Amino acid sequence: MLNLQALVDKPTLVGERVRLVPLDASHAPAMFAGVNDPEVRRFTGTHAEFTFEDVEQYSATRREQTDRVDLAVLRAEDGKVLGDIVLNDLDAANEKMGFRIALIAEQGKGYGTEATRLLLRYAFDVIGLHRVELEVFDFNPRAIASYRKCGFVEEGRLREALLWEGRWHDALLMGVLRTDNI
């Protein structure tokens, strides 16, 4: 039985080096910088362009969502916004959700791996999910390695799922189960 109240009660999750807090409008300036960063846009496959007002409105409405969890990733030592991490696409009948993370600062330093592990614990131990799944583009080996460290297993591939700067790229499908040894 899923604890759907855990999707309403946005958590604060604390690790050694990161804190995950409910995403809100106060995070919009950092998030806006991220959605305009060329590397972040490429790794997330984001073609759309967003205004500051778009990002602020999106951030401000995350607490209202009752079928997902949107958290800001903060560096524990100083509160710097490193990005966001999300459980979305709730499929309650099959006890699964989608996952995404977008680091806008300090990539490659283990923050994303720690944040992912914290949110997976919440997903399995508090919400009671059986499965968490994601897509990642084949040109993002750092993210793929981080996901594998967190227990995600490659389950398939969407061939030529992203057209980026005139080249086609595959999306890897990855998933992790509550019963996996993570």
Rank of each mutant, 00 (worst) to 15 (best):
M1Y: 10
M1F: 06
L4Q: 09
Q5S: 02
V8M: 01
D9Y: 04
V14N: 02
V14L: 02
G15P: 03
G15Y: 03
E16G: 07
R19M: 05
L20M: 04
V21S: 04
V21N: 00
D24G: 07
P29R: 11
P29Q: 10
A30G: 08
F32D: 11
F32I: 15
N36W: 11
P38F: 12
R41E: 09
R41Q: 12
G45C: 15
A48M: 12
F52C: 09
F52S: 06
F52K: 10
E56A: 11
Q57E: 11
S59A: 15
S59R: 13
T61R: 10
R62Q: 09
R62A: 05
R63D: 00
D67A: 03
R68D: 07
R68Y: 03
R68F: 02
R68A: 07
D70S: 09
L71F: 01
A72K: 12
A72P: 08
G79Y: 08
G83D: 06
D84K: 11
I85S: 02
V86K: 04
N88G: 02
A105G: 03
K109S: 10
G110W: 05
G110Y: 03
T113P: 01
E114I: 11
A115S: 09
T116Q: 02
R121Q: 06
D125L: 04
R131Y: 07
V132R: 05
E133T: 14
L134E: 01
E135F: 10
D138Y: 10
N140E: 13
P141F: 10
A143K: 14
K149R: 14
C150G: 00
F152G: 00
V153H: 07
E154M: 09
E155Y: 00
G156K: 13
R157C: 10
L158A: 13
R159G: 10
R159S: 13
E160L: 07
L163W: 03
E165L: 06
W168R: 12
H169V: 14
D170F: 08
G175K: 07
G175Q: 07
L177N: 00
R178P: 06
T179L: 03
T179Y: 04
N181L: 01
